[in-house]
Simulated scan of single mutants.
Amino acid sequence: MHIDLSGRTALVTGSTQGIGYAIAAGLARAGARVGVNGRGAASVGEAVARLRADTGSDQLVAAPGDLSADEGVRAVVAAVPEPDILVNNLGIFGVTPPLEIGDDEWRRYFEVNVLTAVRMIRAYLPRMIERGWGRVQCIASDSAVVIPAEMIHYGMTKTALLALTRGFAKAAAGSGVTVNSVIAGPTHTGGVEEYVRQLVGGDLTWDEAQRVFMREYRPQSLLQRLIEPEEIANMVVYLSSPFATATTGGALRVDGGYVDAILP
């Protein structure tokens, strides 16, 4: 299957590192013009330079802006005014005992992980519907379904993403625009390495720490290893393509078999 996104423009939020960076790279390699987003101009500029070197693409657009603030949304929309593909990847996570999560932290997680996606969909979906083509994706998590006891505030936001994705898919019904979420399983990123170290300690080698983490904290994974960001990106690139015209309103799993369910 050859996926050619030439002539399409994509915006990937939170794409200066980790899964977002891998998604931006995958879309660029498929020929799309890609807007790269992060909060600061410096980090976005560095990511664009790395992406250019990694992919050979000259169709990379710097789109810095804090999407939890109205002025940040306006700046990003000005940089990438009419994308064909929107990937809401921006998110934060961290380990906190459930009874120690204060109201401000609950609000912060909802603001960053959920409302930023709502803002971007609201900014771009109407024009996609008018044009009769578009792809919207939200990067969710296995934590949406299997709420982790050590970060239930994070799990709550990812569950909310599944709901809003389904709802916006209904808003785009019959328009030629698809709206889906991607359930990413435990993935190997810099942030996850820090998270694993928090849980299993810092004295082990990374390979040892990863094995202990999967055995003690993610034993139901059928893959029995962390997923690489490029494996998440492969699903996103497919869903962004003309091959995925009949897939909408879905929650597609790239979770290594972590979620013990037949559906979705």
Rank of each mutant, 00 (worst) to 15 (best):
A79P: 04
S68P: 00
R39W: 05
D58H: 11
A53H: 09
S68F: 06
G102H: 12
D70H: 10
V36T: 04
A62P: 10
R33Y: 00
V76E: 06
R29F: 00
A53P: 00
A42F: 10
A30P: 07
A63Q: 08
A63T: 03
N89S: 12
T96A: 14
G45S: 13
I85A: 02
G56A: 08
G40L: 11
R74V: 13
A79T: 08
E71S: 15
T96E: 15
F93A: 09
A41E: 15
I101H: 08
A30F: 08
V61K: 06
Q17P: 00
F93W: 13
A63K: 03
G72C: 11
A79N: 11
G20C: 11
L99Y: 10
N37V: 05
P64L: 05
V73A: 11
G26R: 01
G26K: 07
Q17M: 13
D66A: 12
D103S: 12
G18W: 05
A47S: 12
E46I: 11
A28C: 06
V61Y: 08
L99F: 14
S57F: 03
A63Y: 02
V80W: 06
I23N: 06
V77L: 07
V95G: 00
V44Y: 02
G91V: 03
A28F: 06
G40S: 15
A22R: 02
I85F: 02
V12T: 05
I92N: 04
I85L: 10
V61T: 12
P98D: 04
E82A: 15
D66P: 03
G35N: 06
T16G: 00
G94C: 09
D70V: 13
R39Q: 13
T9A: 05
G45Q: 07
D103E: 14
D103M: 06
D70T: 13
S68K: 08
A24I: 06
R74C: 03
G38V: 01
R74N: 14
